[in-house]
């Protein structure tokens, strides 16, 4: 399975379009990580626990998108976009979407 955010895959041609596929996940930090971030808020800088959390979320969202793509018989997903939104205090949704295609 190939993923790009270009409109095609260089060196290959798209033979079939199978429509939009998407995957998303909503996650929040556990209490321990939250306290750490609270202390960190005084001195600022990178919140590694959050970076990690959102990276895991993105991997999961991408995996779900790929599962959908496989289910419709695609062998690649093109024009992939990511979106993050803060839906509640301490919880974020990460979403990945793209066009499922068959390439040769």
């Amino acid at each position: 399975m190939e993923i790009t955010n270009l409109e095609s895959i260089p060196g290959k041609s798209i033979t079939r379009h199978l429509g939009l596929v998407q995957g998303s996940t909503v996650r929040s930090k556990h209490v321990g990580k939250d306290i750490f971030a609270g202390l960190k808020n005084i001195v600022g800088g990178e919140l590694k626990a959050y970076t990690e959390l959102l990276n895991e979320s993105r991997a999961e969202a991408t995996e779900r998108m790929l599962a959908q793509a496989r289910a419709v018989g695609a062998n690649a997903v093109v024009n992939v976009r990511f979106a993050t939104s803060n839906i509640a205090a301490g919880a974020a949704e990460v979403m990945a979407y793209g066009t499922a295609v068959v390439v040769q």
Binding site: I3, G11, L47
Partner: peptide, 23 residues
């Protein structure tokens, strides 16, 4: 990508960071 150049593989790459303000 430039049409006159050939490419072997394409891979989606992501970089991310969460940064907070200080007091």
């Amino acid at each position: 990508p430039p049409a006159d150049q050939e490419f072997r593989g394409a891979k989606l790459v992501v970089g991310s960071v969460v940064i907070a303000e200080d007091y």
